[in-house]
Simulated scan of single mutants.
Amino acid sequence: MQRRRRTRPTTSFEQRLSDAAKALRERAKRLPPGPERENLLRQARQAETAAHINQWLSSPGLASPK
């Protein structure tokens, strides 16, 4: 049985989401107005929202009650 090769990401989840949002916005900039551009901008907003939610969830203010 083969073992799965497992690698760890070199950047944080938040950084990868931010990079993805930036790349999506750059791609959208090069497109003319239309549904494809709007889809890319929507995906960029979703990535930014996910980064904010992840930051909020990992904040120390959300520690479980003791």
Rank of each mutant, 00 (worst) to 15 (best):
A21S: 11
S64D: 13
D19W: 02
R27K: 13
D19V: 05
W56K: 14
W56P: 02
A50S: 12
L40D: 00
Q55T: 15
S18V: 03
R5I: 10
F13W: 07
L31I: 01
R25N: 02
T49M: 11
R42N: 08
A21F: 03
I53D: 06
M1I: 07
N54M: 12
R37L: 03
R37C: 04
S64E: 15
T10Y: 00
A28H: 06
H52E: 15
P9N: 04
Q55L: 14
L24M: 09
D19G: 07
K66R: 11
Q46L: 10
L17Y: 05
E14N: 08
H52W: 11
S18N: 10
L57G: 06
R8G: 00
R8V: 04
D19L: 09
Q55M: 13
H52F: 09
S64Q: 15
Q43E: 12
P65M: 09
R27S: 09
R5S: 07
E38T: 06
E36L: 09
H52T: 14
R42F: 07
P60K: 13
H52M: 14
N54R: 14
Q15K: 10
G34H: 05
Q43I: 01
H52C: 10
Q15G: 02
R37W: 04
T11P: 00
P60W: 10
R6W: 01
R3M: 06
P9Q: 02
R6A: 05
E14I: 12
Q43H: 06
D19F: 02
A47E: 02
R6I: 14
E48M: 08
L24A: 08
M1K: 04
Q46N: 14
R6H: 03
S59E: 12
Q46S: 12
T11V: 10
A28I: 02
L40R: 01
Q2R: 08
A20N: 06
S59N: 13
S58W: 08
L62W: 11
G34Q: 07
E36V: 07
A28R: 05
A23C: 01
R27F: 10
L24Y: 02
H52L: 14
I53Q: 08
A50Q: 14
T10A: 09
F13D: 11
N54A: 15
E26G: 03
A47F: 06
H52A: 15
L62D: 04
N54F: 15
K29S: 12
K66M: 10
E36H: 07
P32V: 03
S64V: 14
L31S: 07
Q2T: 10
P65S: 14
A44M: 04
P65K: 10
S12W: 00
T10W: 00
E36P: 00
L17K: 05
R42W: 01
E26T: 05
P9R: 03
A20V: 01
S18R: 08
R3F: 03
R16F: 04
T49P: 00
G61P: 03
P65A: 15
P60N: 13
A50P: 02
P35L: 09
R45K: 11
K22V: 05
T7G: 00
A20L: 11
